[in-house]
Write a protein that binds this DNA or RNA. Structure first.
Length: 878
RNA sequence: GCCGAUGUGGCGAAAUGGCAGACGCAACGGACUUAAAAUCCGUUGGGCUUAACCGCCCGUGCCGGUUCGAGUCCGGCCAUCGGCACCA
């Protein structure tokens, strides 16, 4: 069987150019003070979400985003930018550890092998990364600084006055451990028995672990938490000025889940205890005729009356036995028990019974709600189930009170003495004022966001730089970093919740009286700041040098420091004018990572966590900008040819290296970009790759022909000739279209235009070299290998990677004649050619004289004529 | 239920409110070839009409609106996908 004939020799020239780029450091981005640094060049930081190097190697999803950023990086270099385009490895994580448990091979070895494989594969696609900046989160020289940043967080608190993270030294209270941004707390955590570790809320999907899909149960444990909730408002406000997909901003906003309402205090009848509830509908308080506590609420034990105790205990047991999944699954049917005690409704002094029910969650608000069955679906369901009275207190527009039950929107208050007749917003204000006046309530804001559960019971992660003594934790000294994990033979989780590191008895012992923390950090820790490390990866004095950080992360002018998003939340500031000024100046002065492309799956994980760390480091004065990623784009998923998600199960997985073997890296890159819009989900098609490969082969044959001996040589059609007018026009039109499309990340249409260009030159007897050189530069970011080779074959000066991006001349694009569309009543009747810039009168006259127009108008009267110069004439007749 | 995205040929898709379907795939026809592959040239939304040319009608999920003119803007539905989900 003959070897499949290659349409052009990509198998030779692609490795050739990859070697040249490596050897000439073609894509090294110099830092300030480096010899080759050119201060006159503007910077551009274009970043990929660095991969977890799994054993399976690259799949076609990775290179989609990577190709997009590579095109932008190469394009920006040609436009004279100093481009930071780095790559690295997010290499701590469960798969390597689980593999280690199965095979006994140390995760370090697995990780090293996997990285080597990934790197080879990425290089084979021809990405223009600055490999001198490669980083690896499992490298002690890297995680030294992950640990160091953790200590910054540990040694900080959130000052509610300034709304900033500040060093713990500025705290004047008596128990600093209570207010640290990294703290230890006993909380009901997500415990995954199968994985033997706890997980963050963000890592639990439908009651199952995101990794592996194993069941997760609630279990109280002492764990490290990061106080991300303190930053909820700033994380929310910061989104406004970011150039991110709206859907992604919505995901984060949703996840943070801010709601404004009131906290109201209810006295417990016959005791001095009180219970606070949170509500967003304080205007409905007159309808509150019972109260519900979460079964885990700490006051339940105290408040339950003797005769109800057995019942209460039984219910609490039942609830505790349910997994999260069951608890939400059985959501339809309300359950609960009366605990015997009553509360007093502060507005009317009515005694209302207190229940516990699992539809109230301990984790949100105060773990207690006032039951307003008239205007809350869940409360209504509960009241109906247990035959509690239902009183309408908000009248729906156009409906009588009795039909307003179940009405959830804003209406008019009824059956509510203080606020009767008031529209909901006013009613809320008045009730709140009343509650405040009587000292039983205040305005309050609550979030769905929980503090970040930051410890894991794993081996393959960053150890905490923390020691324990007498039940108290303290930080390691900076000089003791990096703290490396102990060498372990047995990585298995203990199953008890005790971390594997606890098995290393020698390692744990810090001194005669102190022991090391044995938990490790979650996989997300390393990726929270890797984009900063890329700015200065070799620095062993600082996590990132000040000057490289200022240069690459954007702001070396004063304006940025003055216009950060901090100090006041937007919700407060919006009342004053300062917000408007700040808002516009932020927009005018973007910074940070200029373009960040990656999958949407990190919406409420990496992208939220990294923003949080960034803000802490910003507050502490280490960073130039309050936000890390100015512009973010999510690439769409690539499906299998059968339109299903690629998976082994369906046998529809495409291996990029197989594709490159047959069609070459350039064709692979171009096809991934030609498939459709970057952000869109789209199915793979081998036929499509073939089509793009044909296009590149046509580019090749435009300049090269095969001689008798089967060798490629320069085509004789190539000449130092002046391009014809038509050739010039198409060349300039292509420059314009490709330039605009790259800026808009519309790579599919850029490639279409280049296909049109090539089609126009195919079969030309004379192919002007100048037009070809221009074209090669345009195509270079997409297909860097073939264009580099052809550039050299054409004996062009220098390297193609060092050319400047062509400019187009608008004048060349101007036509002397234009086609005018003739419409009658909006329907196209004919097309005529007219001189450019014909007057409206000339166009109208030509239209009226046109035979097809006259036929279409017939005996009707012309009512109106719309003329769009150089475009169309529409005759309105009736 | 809430939030978000998407609906255009046989398929992937184009289209600053102004010629719907660019470009590519597939299909069909032709040239080259002993033949095939490769390559090049052409046709290709649906329908009606015509011997043929010509000519006409319909068409961007559905219904309505704004406009001289709507795939595009507005209102209301439907469907598919993604996220959140007893969040008070």
């Amino acid at each position: 069987m003959n070897e499949r004939r290659k349409p052009y020799p990509f198998d030779r020239l692609e490795p050739k150019w990859q070697t040249i780029w490596d050897e000439t450091r073609a894509f090294h981005a110099p830092n300030p003070r480096e010899e080759s640094f050119d201060p006159s060049k503007p910077k551009f930081y274009v970043l990929d979400m660095f991969p977890y190097p799994s054993g399976a190697g690259l799949h076609v999803g990775h290179p989609e985003g990577y190709t997009a950023t590579d095109i932008v990086a190469r394009y920006k270099r040609l436009r004279g930018f100093n481009v930071l385009h780095p790559m690295g490895w997010d290499a701590f994580g469960l798969p390597a550890e689980q593999y280690a448990i199965k095979t006994g091979q140390h995760p370090e070895i697995t990780t090293r092998d996997n990285i080597a494989k990934f790197k080879t594969q990425l290089k084979r696609i021809g990405f223009s990364y600055d490999w001198e900046r490669e980083i690896n989160t499992t490298d002690p020289a890297y995680y030294k600084w992950t640990q160091w940043i953790f200590l910054q967080i540990y040694n900080s608190w959130f000052n509610p006055e300034t709304k900033r993270a500040e060093p713990i030294s500025s705290y004047r209270g008596d128990d600093p451990d209570n207010i640290r941004l990294a703290y230890v707390a006993e909380v009901a955590v997500n415990w995954c028995p199968e994985l033997g570790t706890v997980l963050a809320n963000e890592e639990v999907i439908d009651g199952k672990s995101e990794v592996g899909g194993f069941p997760v149960v609630r279990r109280p444990m002492r764990q490290w938490m990061l106080r991300i909730t303190a930053f909820a408002d700033r994380l929310l406000d910061g989104l406004d000025d970011l150039d991110w997909p709206l859907s992604l901003k919505a995901l984060q906003r949703n996840w943070i889940g801010r709601s404004e309402g009131a906290e109201i205090e209810f006295q417990i009848d016959g005791t001095s205890d009180s219970i606070r509830v949170f509500t967003t509908r304080h205007d409905t308080i007159y309808g509150a005729n019972y109260m519900v506590l979460a079964p885990e609420h700490p006051l339940v034990d105290r408040l339950a009356t003797e005769d109800r105790r057995a019942e209460v205990a039984k219910y609490r047991e039942q609830v505790a036995a349910k997994s999260d999944l069951e608890r939400t699954d059985l959501a339809k049917d309300k359950t609960g028990v009366f605990i015997g005690a009553c509360a007093i409704n502060p507005v009317n002094q009515e005694k209302i019974p207190i229940w516990i029910a699992d539809y109230v969650l301990m984790g949100y608000g105060t773990g207690a709600v006032m039951g307003v069955p008239g205007h809350d679906e869940r409360d209504l369901e509960f009241a109906r189930k247990f035959n509690l009275t239902v009183l309408p207190v908000v009248q729906a527009p156009g409906k009588p009170p009795e039909e307003s039950i179940g009405f959830l929107e804003d209406g008019v208050a009824i059956n509510s003495p203080i606020i009767n007749g008031l529209a909901t917003p006013e009613a809320k204000k008045k009730i709140l004022a009343w509650l405040e006046e009587h000292g039983v309530g205040r305005a309050d804001v609550r979030y769905k966001l929980r503090d970040w559960l930051f410890s894991r019971q794993r081996y393959w992660g960053e150890p905490f730089p923390i020691v324990w003594e007498d039940g108290k934790h303290s930080a390691l000294k900076e000089t003791e970093l990096p703290l490396e994990p102990p060498p372990l033979e047995d990585f298995k989780p203990t199953g008890t919740g005790e971390p594997p590191l606890a098995k290393a008895k020698d390692w744990i012992r810090y001194s005669d009286t102190a022991t090391r923390e044995t938990n490790t950090m979650p996989q997300w820790a390393g990726s929270c700041w890797y984009y900063l490390r890329f700015c200065d990866p070799g620095n062993d004095k600082r996590f990132v040098g000040e000057e490289p950080e200022r240069y690459w992360m954007g702001a070396d002018n004063d304006e940025a420091r003055m216009t950060n998003d901090e100090g006041m939340t937007k919700h407060e500031a919006v009342a004053g004018s300062s917000f408007v000024i700040r808002h516009s100046s932020l927009r005018a002065n973007p910074g940070g990572v200029d373009l960040y492309i990656g999958g949407v799956e990190h919406a409420v994980l990496h992208l939220l966590y990294a923003r949080f760390w960034h803000k802490v480091l910003f507050d502490l004065g280490y960073l130039s900008k309050p936000e890390p990623f100015q512009r973010l784009v999510n690439q769409g998923m690539i499906l299998g040819e059968d339109n299903r998600k690629m998976s082994k199960r369906w046998g529809n997985v495409i291996d990029p290296l197989d594709v490159i073997e047959i069609y070459g890296a350039d064709a692979f890159r171009c096809y991934e970009m030609f498939m459709g819009p970057l952000e869109q989900m789209k199915p793979w098609s081998m036929k499509g790759v073939e089509g793009v490969s044909r296009f590149l082969a046509r580019v090749w044959r435009l300049m090269m022909t095969e001689n008798q001996a089967g060798e490629w040589e320069l085509s004789t059609a190539l000449q130092d000739a002046e391009p014809t007018k038509a050739q010039q026009k198409i060349t300039h039109a292509t420059i314009k279209k490709v330039t605009d499309d790259i800026e808009a990340l519309a790579f599919n249409t850029a490639i279409s235009q280049m296909m049109i260009f090539v089609n126009a030159f195919t079969n030309s007897e004379v192919v002007p070299v100048s037009a070809m050189r221009t074209f090669l530069v345009l195509l270079n970011p997409f297909a860097p290998h073939i264009t580099s080779e052809l550039w050299q074959q054409l004996k062009s000066p220098g390297e193609i990677t060092q050319q400047s991006w062509p400019a187009y001349d608008e004048a060349v694009l101007v036509e002397d004649e234009v086609e005018i569309v003739l419409q009658v009543n909006g329907k196209v009747r004919d097309r005529i050619t007219m001189p450019l810039d014909s007057t409206s009168e000339q166009l109208e006259a030509a239209a009226r004289a046109n035979e097809k127009v006259r036929n279409a108008v017939g005996s009707q009267t012309i009512r109106k004529v719309v003329v769009v110069p150089n475009k169309l004439v529409n005759i309105v007749a009736a």
